[in-house]
Design a protein around this nucleic acid. Structure first.
Lengths: 132, 132
DNA sequence: ATTAGTGCAAATGGTTTGCAGATGT
DNA sequence: ACATCTGCAAACCATTTGCACTAAT
């Protein structure tokens, strides 16, 4: 039911490029506020609203992955392509991508067993990495 | 490192009992606002702040399970005891408890393989149930 | 010219907090 | 009495929106 082909974007945007670039400088998930602050410090001022709008658009366009932090803010990171989940360190925030065929299968089967359609799943692992 | 024994509660609270009772009338996860509203309609008025405070206390005391909805609000439900995950209908909100030994194992192994300790995981399945 | 993109400030909406008064022990 | 519990209103804070303005095509 969802359009697999990302709809055409509007005209080329300077800010959007700057935001994407800033995001590229990070390894893990950052909030819109983080991105905005980072750009401010780098003297690449952007309106906070623009950051929010752009980030959302990028997620819809499939360029970004987003997830909700434990405190409830939405965080973003450049998309790596194929479907995967995250293993996040609760101390340093480092996030590793992990793939879990076992989980995908389990999710599909479980959903089907209960008569659910169009299943999507959220799987996040949080732990303390070896550096802590 | 965390105290496994729920710390002693304060004195017996009337409101807390009312809130727990209200929550008992629900099957799936409800937000603090939902609970507050339900109580208002049942003529068991309570301050919204009290609902928030109480709900949080109950989660800490291990009486409630809480999770964040897709829109970011925190939702609560009486704890059912053993560890499990949820299969939620995106249309009616109905939530089924599902157990996934496969997922637990996968989570533990994945974490270990990357040197992570004290792993906890979040797994939520969202789909459309057979009634829709 | 046209229209999408942007900034700013104001509006939202869930959640938290400060504080005075009610309540259980 | 005394500490905890409550309610109310104000404070918070991430996010959204209205609107005038700038810039890409």
């Amino acid at each position: 039911m969802s359009d697999p082909t990302p709809p055409p974007r509007g005209r080329t945007s300077t800010k959007r490029a700057a935001i994407a670039e800033t995001l590229a400088g990070f390894e893990d998930f950052r909030s819109a506020q983080d991105v905005h602050e980072a750009m401010r410090r780098a003297d690449r001022r952007v309106g906070l609203a623009t950051v929010y709008r752009t980030l959302q658009a990028m997620v819809e366009g499939g360029e970004l992955d987003s997830l909700r932090s434990e405190t409830g803010e939405v965080t973003y990171r450049l998309c790596s392509g194929s479907h995967h989940h995250h293993l996040v360190c609760r101390v340093c925030g480092k996030a590793l991508e992990v793939r879990g065929p076992a989980v995908e299968t389990w999710a599909a089967r479980t959903a089907e067993a209960h008569g659910f359609r169009d299943i999507s799943h959220t799987v996040e692992l949080v732990g303390t990495c070896s550096d802590h």
